[in-house]
Every structure is written in structure tokens, then in C-alpha cells.
Amino acid sequence: MTGAPAAWAARLWRGVVWYLRELSGEARYDHYVERMRREHPDRTPLGEREFLRERERHEREHPNTSCCC
């Protein structure tokens, strides 16, 4: 029984980290690599830096609306 709270806390911690990484967009690169691996195993995915620059360029050219009030 002593291990249960620790395991529970560890799971909670991993859950929080998962949520923050998803919410902040930090996990986006991982998803990209995963998708490339699955759908285009023959191509080498972009490195993280290149990926982030591409992403930034894309966002600059396609701005999204967030609320101003």
C-alpha cells in the first residue's frame, strides 16, 4: 500500500507535464516526427530548429484571431 500514493503522484505529475507540453505547443515537434515516421518512413524529418522556423513562418503568414476583449 505504501507504493500506491507514490505511483499516483507520479502519474499525476506525468499528466500535468503532458498537459503543459501539449497546451504550450512544446509537444508539436514530437507529433510531427511521429507522423513523418508513420506516413512517410522514406523521408527524413526536419530537425527541430528547422521545424520551428517553418512553423513560425507559417504562423506569420496565417495569423489567427484571438479575442481583443
Binding site: 502519474r11 499525476l12 506525468r14 499528466g15 503532458w18 498537459y19 505547443g25 508539436r28 515537434y29 514530437d30 507529433h31 510531427y32 511521429e34 507522423r35 513523418m36 508513420r38 506516413e39 512517410h40 523521408r43 526536419l46 521545424f51 517553418e54 512553423r55 507559417h58
Partner: peptide, 23 residues
């Protein structure tokens, strides 16, 4: 394994990508 089963994750194998494969 990075994903947390506690969050009931339904999207273990989500084929997401940040940038379109063929931009």
C-alpha cells in the same frame, strides 16, 4: 510511454504533425 494513462488518453497514436508534411 510518455503519455499518461491517468489522463485517460484517447489519442495514443494520434498522427499529428506540426507542419504539414508537404507544407
Amino acid at each position: 510511454e510518455r503519455r499518461d494513462e491517468d489522463l485517460d488518453d484517447d489519442a495514443e497514436a494520434r498522427p499529428l504533425a506540426g507542419v504539414a508534411v508537404g507544407v
